[in-house]
Amino acid sequence: MSPPEIVEPLPMPGGDAPVFAEPWQAQAFAMVVALHERGLFSWGEWAETLSAELKKPDAAQDGSDYYVHWLRALEVLITKKGVAGQPDVDAVAAAWQRAAHATPHGKPILLENDPVHGRE
């Protein structure tokens, strides 16, 4: 007798979802396309980096976190290319979150709205 096989079900076979579930996914997608076109990396390099992220054991079986890995791969690659390190991205992301908090509802969120802006 062979051991029972664990078969992961396919998420929504044949299902149709919007191309991007949230706007940030679209932006993350487009930044990679733009940087590749600018020649910052080859598509082979990108596929390899993305693959390494997607193969991490915490990747969701239903593929719902695909763009989380996509974004992570982008950060890995720009760090490797010396464009910006993790701390730089963390700092600017925190500034964006402070700016969001300081922006009244209904107004566009601008980085200038960060109360710490310009004082660092």
Binding site: W24, M31, V92, A100, T103
Partner: peptide, 25 residues
């Protein structure tokens, strides 16, 4: 009435800011 940016959205905005400032996108 504050806006909230979820962590992923904030990171994407941060990357866009940095890459734009560096003239890469």
């Amino acid at each position: 009435h504050d806006n909230e940016l979820d962590p992923m959205a904030a990171r994407v905005r941060a990357l866009e800011t940095i890459l734009t400032q560096k003239g890469l996108i």
